[in-house]
Write a protein that binds this DNA or RNA. Structure first.
Lengths: 336, 336
DNA sequence: CTGTTAGCGCTTTCAG
DNA sequence: CTGAAAGCGCTAACAG
């Protein structure tokens, strides 16, 4: 099928290309009558501007990139939803990149994206921050969400991970737990530090000694994680409460408990970070710390678009605000 | 930060722009020595080609689009995962568009995408097929997945929805149900027709009369769906089995059952299409019809890239094969 | 209010 | 093996 371009419109209308171009973009210096004629023909011939030509010329792509560690995860899924809705409102397109928690892949993606393909980037970092900082220095507008840098230079949107960890642990303590395990995600993630600090402080506040053996460092290997948790649950001094720092570890704990013949919450209390909207429907005994994922996505995207606008106006204020959302403790087991 | 382009490389190397360009793309007609020099400097200066310039020139974008009705759904999430992995392998970028089940939004997206922004499109259709057919006629390579057209002209990748519906219903019958309800998604979707046909045929094969009252037409309004299901479960002749044609309806049935004081599977058996990997961990009583979502995504993307390759070679064979995957019945409640 | 002209950065003939 | 030149489709001075 044949593609219409400005040239064709111009010829058919006996106008110059630039007049047509301006008319289509509704510029002030074109007569109403001409605008109407141009618009009409454009609609009739179903003219669609070539995005690459205008991106090349204007040096902007009307596209943002989203880099996330995984997508089969309810937090990121909801966040993308929020991001996409804001992007659509602003007439932007969304490129998705998944790192599969692989720092090398992440670095690759970052390298390949420094070429103007996107006007801005939203990231939830899985690996090293160095390439990310490079990006930033490259001048690409960047907003981190969820998994952020400790570095205050880069605007970021998160939940209050410390508070979430504190709330989760406090909830277990209130329900009688005294021997609470913490299941950690990939050790050097900031979310892990903060959630763990919340855990530790809640223990301290309640005069419960912190024990190293109760912190289980989990990783990317789900089978391995499951084994570690089973070992924990089978040990002579098994915990009476578990705080899972991420969704999949909460699920694994469920599985491990069943494999060990334990029932939640009868034998073992569990609270975990999770954004499975349906989780508590499927299993009313679940208690979760739920992040406002959709809102976080929306907010992160909004911040990015704000930066892009600022930049448009050449107002070069760094604009490095960080926003923190409160996560919510959702209990369903209180009735039992 | 300053951006390096071919011109800069050329000047620094005392070569012409075109030589540099060819060297970088490892063309046969450039001396090894020159190639090395060029590559070295490019790496040193961290040269990244401008994708819009080359897209404009070559009339292809190395980008595919994915249009889906929603993303907070495990089927699509997993499918995207599969799509993205194949895309990355092929050096393609992935643009995501979410229609939120809104046919108007879908039509908009389709209109705005006819401009060369993507080299090909993967779609799971929520609305009318007409704009989709237009696209196809426009010459944009297109592969449908999951929600496809009845139209055999367009290559598509699906699960065997008929068989899934048949299996689900048969499973309920085998477990003693005689009064089985079917919860339908948006009436005019092909997946709905096929799943329902499987339901009807399974009933017929077992000499169970089909009853219109047992088919509940659900829509986009979750609260409304929940009410409809509750009404069903409270009616004098309430069903002893429910087949939910999509994930969210299965979840709603759970919720409705609880609200009505019914226990699954004691008072009511339930089978639903679902791709929640964790569902059966959270609730071992769940029985689901599970689609190989990740594989479907990969396959759909592979078919698309195949078409793109064919096209490259100017072999204009229409290549309209359709692939159908078998979905799997996963029972956990057999032990009870 | 409209047209002419000069690129954006890259690829690709066509000549040497 | 390398260079010069044209042009992808669009936008943005600059002139009138």
């Amino acid at each position: 099928m044949h593609k219409v371009d400005l040239k064709e419109l111009a010829e058919k209308l006996n106008l110059s290309i630039s007049t047509v171009s301006r008319a289509l973009r509704d510029r002030y210096d074109i007569s109403t009558r001409t605008k109407q004629r141009v618009m009409a023909l454009a609609a009739e011939l179903n003219y669609q501007p070539n995005p690459y030509a205008s991106s090349l010329r204007q040096r902007k792509s009307k596209t943002i990139g989203v880099v996330i560690p995984e997508i089969a995860n309810n937090f990121f899924t909801l966040a993308i939803n929020g991001i996409e809705s804001v992007a659509q409102e602003n007439g932007y397109h969304v490129l998705i990149y998944i790192t599969h928690e692989d720092p090398e892949k992440e670095a690759n993606i970052i390298r390949h994206i420094r070429n103007g393909r996107v006007d801005g980037l939203l990231m939830s970092v899985s690996g090293n921050m160095d390439p990310v900082r490079d990006l930033k220095e490259n001048g690409l507008p960047l907003v981190l969400f969820d998994r952020v840098s400790e570095d205050p230079q880069i605007p970021s949107v998160t939940t209050d991970d410390y508070q979430g960890g504190f709330d989760a642990t406090s909830h277990l303590i209130e329900n009688g737990c005294r021997n609470i395990a913490y299941l950690a995600v990939s050790k050097n993630l900031s979310i892990n530090h903060k959630r763990m600090k919340g855990y530790q402080d809640a223990l301290k506040k309640n005069n419960i000694p912190y024990k190293d053996q109760l912190v289980i460092n989990c990783g990317n290997d789900d089978a391995e994680n499951l084994r570690k948790i089973e070992t924990l649950l089978q040990s002579r001094r098994r915990p009476d409460g578990v705080f899972a720092s991420v969704e999949k570890l909460a699920v694994s704990t469920y599985e491990a408990a069943r494999n060990c013949g334990l029932e939640i919450p009868r034998d073992l209390k569990l609270v975990g970070f999770s954004n499975m909207a349906v989780a508590s429907i499927l299993n009313p005994s679940l208690t979760t710390i739920t992040q406002p994922a959709y809102e976080i996505g929306k907010e992160a995207a909004s911040v990015l678009f704000h930066i892009l606008e600022q930049q448009e106006k050449k107002k070069n204020e760094p604009a490095s605000a960080s926003k923190v959302f409160r996560s919510e403790l959702i209990k369903r087991d209180s009735s039992r």
